[in-house]
Design a protein around this nucleic acid. Structure first.
Lengths: 312, 312
DNA sequence: GTCACGTATGAAAGATATTTTCGGGCGGGG
DNA sequence: CCCCGCCCGAAAATATCTTTCATACGTGAC
């Protein structure tokens, strides 16, 4: 057992039946996947990933050796990168690349600079933001592991109570989820105060569900309550952009949000929020499906209750 | 020179410069090419070509040997077929196949009904929600009045203080906007408590900005503070799905969000929230542009301040 | 500063996949 | 019936991909 852990994981083609690690090969969500995984990559791997994401068509035409030379690395690194991206080896990455190239060839014009400049007219700002957020949604949907999501849904649907942790912008997402769960008659709480979150987490036990929402995957104020919940035996879920981050250690199910590149005028919070909300919506609808018998009347009731608050 | 003519042609990678016979590798017109060339093929090659045209995706997953076995032929025949179809070898045919598969995969995307049923598998839920929200974004961007938006931006950028009203799901949007404005050094408050909202609104005067967020356009708890602010002389902005609603009466500028049809499992709050957030983002970015001198350092500073809250 | 440790990385060996070579077999014409 | 030529697959040769292993690098402790 002196081998490093990553190289062990690498040999997953061998007799490891139950260990489908994250997902089967991704078809189109490659650029997104690169961004998601980039932080956990080494420098050389990043170079490879960058080349691949930047010019799928060109890279698809290259052999391992060619791509290694192009990126100034070795074949081994190229293969490692392919593995990290979820493919059994370079050969399969190459096929996916060819597919991707064909898609964006036939598909739409991926133009639009999407980077917002200080002197962009307001109409451009609207167009670019809308486009970016649409992109974020597509990436998120493509990268979401439905197995993990299904498991999280199943746990939440039967939970005694559900606690959701999030601070900052993610705190609002946590509240959004909580609001909706409450409306279908579930017991849910959102915690933005780290102290209260921990003190509440201590109350959890098997049959409860704790959900942590953090873009960075390493926000201590959110990781800590999840850890406590995890240790108490609750089913834990992490919604994060960094599936390899600290928060994932204590999560039974990890739901990955997409990471968009940010710019000065477009803080990361914006697209991560969009991504998180989509995940949260999926979670909610999934739970609503599973608890339809009770959810439907509850929804109707809360709708009724609000009606009189509207003027005229 | 006893070799047969086809096998000579086969080695076209060698020194046969001017002999590009028909065309470079074909992208999508593969099925057609197979039909065209079928008559000039031998029986075994026809079997291979048929398999390839019939199931591009499946064949792309096979190695030469695999495809040879599947069609009951030999590797050599497979390679010969690939050559006849215009590719340098099987490897390249395989890449083209992968591309073709991806294309026809993506082609049948918009078949989704978008209405979510109780028994939809979770993967469908994800796809439908993502599609819906993308649609909402496109609608919102298309329907947004950039003149009104520009005016609202101008007012907010120079405001002494900015108050934002919203209850329920819209309250979260209000908070989101407030959080972001604070991060660029502006003075902004979100109010979800109707009483406090009104008592704060009384403090406003010319040069201040009040923003009301309500999907229905008639939420009394939000209309009321906006009315007060309006009467006090503040510049008022309404973000609403009903530009003819009560809230618009007291708004100097109305920003319209899109209204998506809702269904039982997909409450209106979901798409209105998406829509509102886009509007709010546009507003924010617009303001950030106009106040760039102060906004940029503030953003950087708040980013720095958060860095140490991340573990490891 | 220096040491020890773990990790990242590429060179080369090893395994697979692809391409080429080569000869057997089958059918049609003499 | 025999000969000729072409189709076809087995196996060798080559290219490509994967794994192993030793080295170098950076990092944190002392």
């Amino acid at each position: 057992m002196t081998q490093n852990v990553k190289e062990i994981f690498a040999g997953h083609a061998a007799g490891t039946p139950g260990t489908a690690p994250t997902a089967p090969p991704a078809p189109a969500a490659l650029a997104a996947k690169v961004r998601t995984l980039a932080p956990s990559m080494t420098r050389s791997m990043q170079r490879v990933a960058e080349a691949v994401a930047g010019d799928p068509a060109g890279c698809a035409a290259l052999t391992v050796t060619g791509l290694a030379e192009l990126t100034g690395t070795s074949e081994a690194t190229v293969v490692r990168t392919a593995r990290l991206l979820g493919y059994p080896g370079y050969r399969d990455l190459r096929l996916a690349l060819a597919g991707l190239a064909a898609q964006q060839q036939s598909g739409r014009a991926p133009a639009i600079t999407t980077d917002i400049a200080v002197d962009d007219p307001i109409a451009d700002v609207v167009a670019k933001l809308a486009y970016d957020e649409q992109q974020t949604l597509a990436d998120t949907a493509a990268g979401l592991d439905t197995v993990q999501l299904g498991a999280a849904v199943a746990a939440a649907a039967t939970a005694r109570r559900i606690d959701v942790y999030g601070v900052g912008a993610s705190g609002l997402v946590a509240q959004d989820l909580t609001q909706k769960l409450l409306r279908i008659g579930l017991i849910a709480h959102a915690h933005s105060d780290p102290h209260l979150a921990v003190t509440n987490a201590v109350q959890l036990r098997a049959g409860d569900v704790a959900i942590a929402i953090t873009h960075s995957g390493s926000t201590g104020d959110v990781v800590e309550p999840l850890r406590v919940a995890f240790e108490r035996g609750a089913t834990t879920v992490a919604i994060t952009g960094r599936p390899d981050g600290a928060v994932a250690q204590y999560a039974d199910h990890v739901l990955t949000t997409s990471i968009a590149r940010e710019s000065e005028l477009r803080p990361a919070a914006m697209s991560s929020r969009t991504s998180q909300l989509l995940v949260v919506d999926c979670l909610f609808v999934g739970v609503a499906q599973k608890t339809y018998e009770t959810a439907a009347p509850s929804l109707a009731a809360s709708y009724e209750a609000l009606a009189h608050r509207h003027r005229r």
